[in-house]
């Protein structure tokens, strides 16, 4: 994408001023094509973002008159025990689900890369859970992970393992959710990794084998660096998704009688949602949303900086 845009204007064109094209008929046609997005960007993205930031400094809630409260919402968030619980749950869930997701996806993809044409069939099967609506996954989680009569513990019993009470034991709620949401929904990443694995040139493996590298060394020193851009992408996307987990957890743990779920299942995005749309504390919810935005920004930035050490892009030395 960067290459396509960079090669387009020649040196002569680049010397022009950025605004010099505004008189052209082409330019007006281009903006006509762009106009739906321009409108949507202002009305549904940048406008609401600015509004959200402003609202976060007020005690806005449709019902009462609005006051400017400065940083009060952010201060309240810092001292809110629910925020701490929600943040801890969300971080723990993300830290469990992302590595599990990446490892299982990588393992399945490298198995698929070895079975030739049958890979298409298996890829289809592994993708199916991705199609399951979040609410359906949440319901299945509730039933299959049930401690006393769920399918999972029944299966564990065959191996003489007494399974924990996945949905009620605070220690096991997040591992269970990570298994059901992140690991079961591994299909899209399997597709990405499989495509990346197929792109690794065979001669690299031959050269490595020639140099006496075993299977593990080949995987570590050839496969991993060559597919590192795909791994990086999957990690970033799943971290962002993990920090915003909503549908499945909301379905399984939240209803009118438990607006804050259980202390082990309260996720940050759900807490924001409940503050905003059941208590109508729009100011507070907006502040919480910006805190999440900042957290996601910082974590993504750390991952990008870290990726410079670990991610290898071909054609760039």
């Amino acid at each position: 994408m960067a290459t396509a845009t960079a090669t387009a204007p020649g040196p002569r064109v680049r010397a022009r001023r950025w605004f010099s094209g505004f008189g052209d008929r082409d330019t007006w046609a281009a903006f006509a094509f762009l106009s739906p997005w321009l409108f949507g960007f202002v009305v549904f993205t940048s406008g609401p973002m600015i509004a959200s930031l402003i609202i976060s400094f007020t005690d806005y809630s449709i019902i009462q008159t609005t006051h400017n409260v400065g940083l009060e919402n952010y201060r309240a968030a810092y001292h809110d025990p629910q925020v701490r619980t929600a943040l801890r749950n969300t971080f723990v869930y993300t830290l469990m689900s992302v590595p599990a997701h990446v490892i299982v996806a990588l393992w399945l993809a490298s198995l698929l890369a070895r079975v030739g044409r049958a890979a298409g069939f298996f890829r289809t099967v592994f993708y199916l859970p991705v199609m399951s609506p979040g609410v359906a996954t949440g319901i299945l989680y509730l039933l299959i992970f049930n401690g006393s009569y769920g399918l999972l513990n029944e299966a564990l019993r065959w191996f003489h393992i007494t399974g924990p009470f996945w949905t009620t034991d605070p220690l096991w709620v997040k591992p269970g959710l990570a298994l059901m949401i992140s690991v079961w929904g591994v299909g899209a990443s399997v597709v990405i990794f499989l495509a990346a694995l197929k792109g690794v040139p065979q001669h690299l493996y031959e050269a490595a084998a020639m140099d006496g590298a075993g299977k593990w060394r080949q995987f570590r020193d050839v496969t991993l660096p060559m597919i590192s851009p795909a791994i990086f992408f999957v990690v970033i996307i799943n971290t962002i998704a993990g920090l915003q987990t909503f549908d499945q957890v909301y379905t399984a743990f939240f209803n009118a009688s438990t607006p804050y779920g259980t202390s082990a299942s309260l996720m940050y995005a759900i807490y924001i949602f409940q503050e905003a749309f059941t208590l109508f504390k729009f100011g507070y919810a907006s502040a919480l949303a910006w805190v999440l935005f900042a957290i996601i920004g910082v974590i993504t930035a750390i991952q990008i900086v870290a990726s410079r050490r670990f991610v290898y892009y071909e054609g760039q030395r």
């Binding site: 959200s52 915003q244 995005a269 919810a285 907006s286 935005f293």
Partner: peptide
């Protein structure tokens, strides 16, 4: 952009 940031203003 996390969708939750624009949720409240979009509703309003």
């Amino acid at each position: 952009l996390p969708g939750v940031v624009t949720l409240v203003p979009t509703y309003l």
